[in-house]
Design a protein around this nucleic acid. Structure first.
Lengths: 215, 215
DNA sequence: CCATGTGAACAAATTCACAGCA
DNA sequence: TGCTGTGAATTTGTTCACATGG
């Protein structure tokens, strides 16, 4: 039976983010030709506790070897499968300003899991221009693009005042998840996964931490 | 008396991020000429609970009016002061690739609190080029740039394999906080505030959520 | 032995329920 | 009366301590 249905339960955002972190590290270790790792070794890397890491893994079953640690190849495989990273997720980026252009190239580069399959803008002057090996298409075409290319995830890099309308357009066109870079709080569709990345929030957090440091 | 010393205690990252979110919303309401808001109204906006929002505010003192709500202007002022957003924080961006260039323009644009005062790259071909109204300088000059311009926050947008070295260089040069966009886990200096933004982690979280939705 | 996996203890974050003040 | 501010209860997340098995 497929583990996917069993394990695709409510795993918290905190755990998911750590798993993603572990995965990056595990892939790097694998590149270096290392085959085994213990939760303690990972804990040292990440300044986390070893039991926490074991509990995170345990969300998706038992796949360590007692007394030995984890087989890196096996661990990567299981985690990737549990997170749905063993399938391709076609992305689409709307808003080919500087940030959108940079992200389109950055996110789609040389990756088996996430691949940018379309880039859109509503500026006729931009439509037809090339970004990497893709041609910018008009935002109005969004519905057929999503259908044709099986787009799963929409990336929003439009100005703040256009973000809500484009978000709605993405969802109506059949996109199943949204990653938003526009600095606004979107009115989200219930049940539709989405995340916002807000640079200003990160800077403001740092500003506060600076303050505390100086006293 | 200065509230700063009193309030600059350990406020959790979760609370800080929400405060930043509230602030954005409050500024928008202020723009619209609205003067008062209740915790319930904010809660509806953010799909959070009203007591949570009140507790968040309460970290920094009492400044609501019972039976009425909060005076938006006053609230903004107090929160900004509590977070250290009433002073300028000079930024420096290292790594003028596509992402770095986009971020330098994005972060420094028209803002009283965060201002990009220098952009750096180690590629001699890029040094001397213009990004907005700044000229790219060589990464080697980092120490004098930080000193001359009073840089507080360093933004890292260099490739993953250079990130640790540039991070160390930033810290040695006297930068007091770092915002990292390179997809690596940095070995951080204890006591020096830093945040990492990892686009892949966000995408991987969405991938998992897609999986759960489909079951 | 050694490191995993996990129930029990602990800590942190959030919600609840209501007292207190405009 | 209405909404803030907050202790108490609850939920969620993390650590501890140890039983389990290679």
């Amino acid at each position: 039976m497929s583990e996917r249905e069993i394990y695709a339960l409510d795993v918290s955002s905190l755990i998911l983010n750590r798993l993603s972190l572990y995965l990056r590290c595990l892939r790097a270790l694998q590149e270096e030709g290392i085959h085994r790792v213990s939760s303690q070794q990972l804990a040292d890397q990440f300044q986390l506790s070893a039991p926490l890491i074991r509990k995170d893994f345990a969300q998706f079953g038992e796949f360590g070897i007692r007394g030995t640690g984890y087989d890196i190849g096996h661990l990567i495989e299981r985690l990737q499968s549990a997170l749905g990273l063993d399938q391709q997720h076609p992305l689409l980026v709307v808003g080919m300003g500087r940030l959108g252009t940079a992200l389109a190239r950055y996110l789609g580069f040389n990756d088996a899991t996430f691949r940018v399959v379309a880039v859109l803008d509503n500026d006729p002057a931009k439509v037809g221009q090339e970004v990497g090996d893709l041609t910018i298409r008009h935002t109005e075409e969004i519905e057929e693009i999503v259908r044709e290319l099986g787009v799963e995830i929409g990336v929003l890099t439009v100005p703040a005042d256009a973000a809500q309308a484009v978000y709605d357009g993405l969802v109506d066109a059949g996109v199943q998840a949204v990653l938003n870079f526009a600095p606004v709080r979107l009115q989200l569709r219930p049940g539709l996964p989405s995340k916002s990345v807000d640079f200003r929030t990160h800077l403001e957090e740092l500003a506060y931490l600076l303050l505390s440091k100086e006293g």
